[in-house]
Design a protein around this nucleic acid. Sequence first.
DNA 1: CTAGCTGCAAACGGTTTGCACAACG
DNA 2: CGTTGTGCAAACCGTTTGCAGCTAG
Lengths: 166, 166
Amino acid sequence: MLNSTSLIAEARTKLEGYLLKKGLRRSSERFAILEEVYSRDDHFDAEELYQAMHQRSFAVSRATVYNTLEVLVDCHLVRKNQFGDEDNTKSRFEKSLGRQQHAHLICVNCHRVMEFCDPRLQLIKTTVGNTLQFHVESHSLVFYGECSDEACVARTKAAAENAAMQ
Amino acid sequence: MLNSTSLIAEARTKLEGYLLKKGLRRSSERFAILEEVYSRDDHFDAEELYQAMHQRSFAVSRATVYNTLEVLVDCHLVRKNQFGDEDNTKSRFEKSLGRQQHAHLICVNCHRVMEFCDPRLQLIKTTVGNTLQFHVESHSLVFYGECSDEACVARTKAAAENAAMQ
DNA sequence: CTAGCTGCAAACGGTTTGCACAACG
DNA sequence: CGTTGTGCAAACCGTTTGCAGCTAG
């Protein structure tokens, strides 16, 4: 029953409740951005979201994109990730409603993002909290390596040979 | 036997070997920066290293700090971390020789950095590599939460009460 | 000598901010 | 209507880059 449509509806309801509780305004921009976020299944950055909003002909400013993403992160409808790969600096976002927290795998060659769940991470979290008297709220686990996508492997191999020639 | 002095000596030797192998120059700046890095035990950013070099009256430019840090990361004498805490964007570095890879705990209140090792992470790494046909090269595990340092707890509590009053 | 390094300052790119105008409640 | 949100462009800040000396090899 958790198909895409009902997920968006649930997200909209949750955002509405959060805005009311916090005394924030239910502006059309905020809901339009939520809609866009929940229509995608990837890990996007702020600029990609900005561009997508323009293509969907609901033009919002970059400032509003950043502002709204912060709101959505605060009410746990969106997760913000800082993958330390090539694009060092920028954050990437993903919807979070109905999705358990997971680890990310980043291909250092093609920057593909994959996801992976492992219950042992939960155990580590508990151990570390107890050992160091630290109240763990959230975590980020990222693996860096090489994916096995054919095109990526071929491209990387070619690049390596090219480099060796010099 | 692995006291601080011998660690620095070992690091210097390793850097020298790496520079020779790669045909890079053994400039005094590079060794001076290595020295500073191995004299500290914290997680520092580029600017802090730059400032420390100036206080140690071996003034180098920011460009050289960044350049040298990259060299040191390449030859595995330094680890580069992107903690996604408040200081969103900047990288933090730590010496790596003779230290096993570890997870980091970041206090969301005082930004203290702690370290923690757990062998189960290795197991997850193996599983994830096999499951997704992904050749894992490295990883980053960061826990965010609240530390139990007295001063931090007190400060956070005061801030919360202050916020509630408005 | 001369390729590679350093220093400086300007450029860069993602994000934040200040301010004028618009619109939710 | 008063307060909050939005849009725009400028500011910010960590990092990178271009270029003119400098220096290790």
